[in-house]
Simulated scan of single mutants.
Amino acid sequence: METFLSWICYQIECLHHGIILIGVVSVLTSLLFLYNSSFTDTPEDQMQSDIQQMDVLQQQTSHLEGYNSIIDHKPLRMRCKSCALVTSSGHMTGSGRGVEIDRKECVIRMNDAPTRGYQKDVGQRTTLRVVAHSSVQRVLRNRHELLNSSQNTFFIFWGPGNHMRQDGKGLVYNNLRLLKQMMPKLQVYVISGLKMLHFDELFKKETGKDRKKSNSWLSTGWFTMAIAMEICDRINVYGMIPPDFCNSPSPEPSVPYHYYEPAGLDECKMYLSHERGRHGSHHRFITEKRVFANWARMFNIHFYQPDWRPAPVTKNSTDS
């Protein structure tokens, strides 16, 4: 087993060092946000349409389209009344939120974020872990914690088409199949290509920007929030800052981008450099958080550590 998993690590490391990802579709989608209204809709019409579609989708609890198991391609079946979506932010350090997080019916984490040694602040349960193709190698390296003890955890992996293709040429997809064969109780799901395309449209709908033309790569945080909205009736998000946090004239003390890498990159510096980047591909962390704040005005989403709520939308003074 150890030799096999080490071989997978080697294969994926070769992938990261040998392939340059240019112009590939790398974003996922959610049927939850298939908007039928045009850009000429009023904000009130758009919000009502969103709420109606959410109500319809919440009734469809049998399975979730677009998330398919790695071997038999069965759709994901998952529903939670309350979820804790735990980010990897340094804001979680010293939070003491662990017990509160573990009380939620479902706990959602991202990539290779560990719990061992951080239970007091981030909890120890994991119901769902959303993993980017670029983080698979790190997950395998931490397999003793993240995989060996995670047979009750659902894993959803996402990645661009050339990594996840199912014709024998998708290296990440192939390695995930081998991993599932070696650990048959592991719950491994992947995002379908169609679902990925729908999430590109979601980003464009919410921001007015074409993801590829704006040199943007959606973050795992974006994917995780959108997936959580399909799964959870209520979402408590831990460690996510508001969209204007890093531009505050009196910013809070800096924190590391990851709570488990205290000497790592500064979170706000990371966010601002990506948001302002125009050459090469970048995440649009702050743009994404503006979308999350807007979703929280319509849906049952709440932010903690730091605790904040989105400001109400101000109406134009000419409105009646």
Rank of each mutant, 00 (worst) to 15 (best):
M225S: 05
I8A: 14
F203I: 07
T287M: 09
L265K: 07
T87C: 10
H163A: 06
S38E: 08
H133Y: 10
R125N: 15
F303P: 09
V130I: 15
N174A: 07
F203M: 06
Y10P: 00
Y173A: 02
G168A: 11
M182S: 11
M196Y: 02
D102Y: 04
H282T: 13
G94E: 07
I22H: 11
K81T: 04
Q46E: 11
Q59D: 07
E201H: 05
A311N: 10
A113C: 12
Q53R: 14
T115W: 14
T224Q: 00
N175F: 00
H63Y: 15
I235E: 03
Q58D: 13
F292D: 00
E206I: 02
H144T: 10
P160E: 11
G221V: 09
N294K: 11
L76M: 12
L197I: 02
C106M: 03
Q166A: 14
S250T: 07
A132G: 15
D102W: 08
R143L: 09
G98R: 08
G168I: 01
A263Y: 08
N162L: 12
T224S: 00
E230F: 01
T29K: 10
D167A: 06
T220K: 03
N152D: 07
V99Y: 09
G280N: 14
M47D: 10
M92N: 15
P249Y: 04
S88E: 09
I8C: 14
G117W: 12
N142S: 15
E105L: 01
V237G: 06
L32T: 09
T207F: 04
E145V: 13
E201R: 04
K104Y: 01
G208S: 10
N162R: 02
I286S: 00
G193K: 08
L265H: 05
P249N: 04
L265E: 12
N152E: 12
V130N: 09
I227G: 07
G168E: 08
M270A: 11
L171K: 09
Q187H: 13
G18T: 09
K213V: 03
L176Q: 02
T314L: 14
